[in-house]
Design a protein around this nucleic acid. Structure first.
Lengths: 251, 251
DNA sequence: TGACCTTTGTTCATATATCGCACATATTGT
DNA sequence: ACAATATGTGCGATATATGAACAAAGGTCA
């Protein structure tokens, strides 16, 4: 790609949108400039553009994103077949096992939820399509990492910020790679309170009709009611069943 | 705002993202140019920028959005308090009444789902945060329209493409305005299969601590199991209860 | 098959718009 | 009231959009 085939104004604007996050819902011009590394004048122009287009509100001091910004992500969710195809299966699955079921794909070092059927809340964090979790300590992340060549998964682990969310979180790349080998062999991953105390989950890969892993699905359950050791026993077959049914539907 | 405080390259890029939709997941350069009204050369530059940044994939012919694009909408969902605050209440509500519960806000002529607890699927369409429905024929839309001054709601109705989704869909602006008056008086809206045959829903407004309507919540149910006439009887109190609890939590 | 037409993608020169700096002004906190 | 921090603005240097021209691919029909 040539230099001139890149619209840096657009790229800068996207950076500005991403500057808004969980802990930073309201941003002043200078905040955005700092967060994005853009010049203040540039950040200001991008923010004013967002406001002008209705993607943000501006009270003269702070900018806040408006729901219109959801159109952008929705363009993906509605345009991509995968979430639509998977959702009804998750609904059925969640109802059957009385636990939350989700589907996700990998984006860099994170898993991105693309569909979810929540039963009752077991996590403190609120997951919805678009939500992200670090791949290395999420069951779907393990499955997705295990599906790629060792070189790539190792590279992603190295890029990851491997921090211990709980005392049980695996953070050693070597042990993680060993775990990935095991996950690949057994065809599923179980996470025992590595992300949040009290939460266990189990995930299996979703293959398309040509055998390529295109996503993962999981079931999460409170550790109190379902010990990690029982996760596979209870939920592996239901998950595998869904994966089998979906195999021919995905490409 | 001055002329130069607008980054048109950014605005054009956002237009390009929005060109992708339910029926148009894979777009060639010319498609995007047509859909956005941009010059082919410009559309190409925006698309290549998206691809370069990892927001889109390009196979030499078609562009497809990647899950990375969800970061943009997620910036809103995670940054905005409303969805987070409302979600647990919806979960509880959905579990209680064994039906799906949702929350939405208005964006132009559409309601945008910002949170949802789905019980079982009753609609053919798949709703998730970011999903949109025309306000005029959705229960939450009615409630949100009813909360604004007549002039504004009428203006929005006039902007809407009032098409009959089912034989029961109200499409006459005059009758819709009458309905809005009723909704405002009674404090809730019931939709009887106006959007999809077999689907009823009931919505109430969500007020913040100062009495301003900031969102709406609803419960949807299959018409077969819950006739429209029973919707209020069964679900109005649970909905009102949630609205009451939330009132002091919202600003 | 091959000539013609249509549609699509790419390139280029140039007019135009944006960037980032430096300065001016406003707001905030002490 | 002052310092510190944040926001607004003018301008030269730089980057981008435009639209036409070209190239390439695909389709149609004799």
């Amino acid at each position: 790609m040539r230099e001139t085939d890149f619209v840096s104004g657009f790229a800068r604007g996207l950076k500005v949108i991403e500057a808004f996050g969980e802990t930073t819902p309201r941003l002043a011009i200078a905040d955005v400039a700092k967060a994005t590394g853009l010049d203040r004048a540039t950040a200001r122009r991008c923010l004013l553009t967002l406001a002008e287009l209705g993607y943000a509100d501006y009270d003269g001091k702070f900018f806040v994103l408006t729901p219109k910004i959801l159109r952008l992500g929705h363009a993906y969710l509605s345009a991509t077949p995968l979430p639509h195809i998977v959702q009804p299966f998750l609904d059925k699955l969640a109802e059957e096992v009385h636990q939350s079921a989700s589907a996700s794909v990998l984006d860099g070092t994170e898993v991105v939820y693309i569909a979810r059927a929540s039963q009752k809340r077991v996590m403190s964090i609120n997951l919805m399509p678009g939500s992200r979790l670090p791949a290395y300590c999420a069951s779907m992340g393990r499955v997705l990492l295990a599906a790629m060549p060792d070189g790539e998964s190792l590279a992603l682990l190295k890029q990851s910020n491997l921090k211990p969310f709980t005392p049980r979180t695996l953070t050693d790349p070597v042990r993680l790679m060993e775990e990935l080998v095991r996950v690949r062999q057994q065809g599923f991953a179980v996470i025992d309170q590595e992300l949040e105390l009290g939460l266990c989950s189990i995930a299996v890969p979703l293959e398309n009709d040509r055998g390529r892993v295109v996503a993962a699905i999981n079931i999460g359950a409170p550790a109190a009611s379902v010990p990690a050791a029982e996760m596979a026993e209870r939920y592996l077959e239901p998950l595998k069943g869904v994966a089998r049914l979906l195999k021919s539907l995905l490409r």
